[in-house]
Simulated scan of single mutants.
Amino acid sequence: MNPDEVIKAGQLEIRYLVDGTATGSMGVFELTLPPGANVPPPHSHRDNEEFFYVVEGAVTYSVDAETRDLTPGEWMSTPRGSVHGFRNVGSQTARAIVVLTPDIGAQYFREVAAVVNAGGPLDKAKLVAVMSRYGLTPALPAQPAA
């Protein structure tokens, strides 16, 4: 793992600090999120818990039915299987430290970046295929009440 590698997936930047995939342990990466950036769709992790800690800026983070605006020093955790998502609706770039246990690894983000950065309209089927290989499932859109 190259600690200076920055993986750019669209407008997002991911810099791995600890890649835990070799040992099946915890992974840690820094996420840089410009204002209004395209973000991953709400999703769940079959095999991973996630901890999201804001270092700079503000991030709106949702876990299941709870949504909070996180500022520096604030955090949320996502239990395995919970639907979560995030966005930067502020006016400045946000940075967060993300911990996954066990880790999905930098290779996941490299594969996502290859799909997202391919040019043209996003190939959603390819993106879902990458997510599925790593145990991530996009959330189904909310259904209107009957």
Score class of each variant (00 low, 15 high):
32 T>M: 04
4 D>Q: 14
93 T>D: 02
36 G>H: 02
137 T>C: 08
144 P>W: 09
146 A>I: 10
58 A>C: 00
101 T>Q: 14
122 L>T: 06
53 Y>I: 07
19 D>V: 02
79 P>C: 00
81 G>Y: 07
9 A>W: 03
57 G>H: 11
140 L>R: 14
65 A>I: 13
79 P>W: 07
80 R>M: 05
20 G>L: 07
41 P>V: 14
24 G>V: 08
93 T>F: 05
1 M>F: 12
121 P>W: 08
27 G>H: 04
74 E>V: 01
53 Y>F: 12
133 R>H: 06
98 V>M: 05
94 A>N: 00
124 K>D: 14
120 G>C: 01
133 R>N: 08
52 F>D: 03
28 V>Y: 05
7 I>G: 07
86 F>C: 03
111 E>Q: 15
134 Y>W: 13
17 L>H: 06
54 V>T: 03
40 P>R: 04
7 I>R: 08
139 A>N: 05
29 F>M: 10
106 A>R: 05
49 E>G: 04
130 V>I: 14
31 L>F: 08
134 Y>P: 04
13 E>G: 00
94 A>S: 01
127 L>W: 02
14 I>K: 07
8 K>Y: 04
7 I>F: 11
124 K>E: 15
131 M>S: 05
28 V>L: 15
6 V>Y: 10
105 G>K: 05
42 P>A: 00
90 G>S: 09
101 T>W: 13
128 V>K: 10
16 Y>Q: 11
65 A>D: 15
145 A>N: 13
28 V>M: 14
141 P>I: 12
103 D>E: 10
67 T>M: 04
99 V>H: 02
102 P>W: 08
63 V>R: 02
25 S>V: 12
89 V>G: 12
111 E>R: 11
96 A>K: 06
34 P>H: 00
42 P>G: 03
27 G>E: 04
143 Q>D: 10
11 Q>W: 02
108 Y>P: 01
55 V>P: 00
18 V>T: 14
38 N>P: 07
110 R>N: 06
139 A>T: 05
8 K>G: 02
128 V>C: 01
118 A>S: 12
28 V>G: 01
143 Q>P: 13
115 V>D: 04
21 T>E: 09
22 A>L: 12
43 H>R: 11
23 T>K: 06
48 N>R: 07
100 L>C: 08
63 V>D: 08
109 F>D: 12
92 Q>H: 06
10 G>I: 09
45 H>F: 11
15 R>N: 15
125 A>D: 15
74 E>A: 00
54 V>F: 01
80 R>L: 03
10 G>F: 04
28 V>K: 08
17 L>E: 15
132 S>V: 05
24 G>I: 10
143 Q>A: 11
64 D>P: 09
138 P>Y: 11
144 P>F: 03
138 P>K: 06
1 M>Y: 14
5 E>Y: 11
133 R>Q: 14
43 H>M: 13
16 Y>A: 07
48 N>A: 13
56 E>I: 06
43 H>L: 15
4 D>R: 13
38 N>I: 14
120 G>P: 03
56 E>G: 01
85 G>S: 14
69 D>Y: 01
62 S>A: 11
71 T>Q: 09
87 R>P: 05
69 D>G: 04
106 A>C: 00
110 R>W: 08
27 G>R: 01
51 F>L: 12
101 T>L: 07
137 T>A: 10
116 V>K: 11
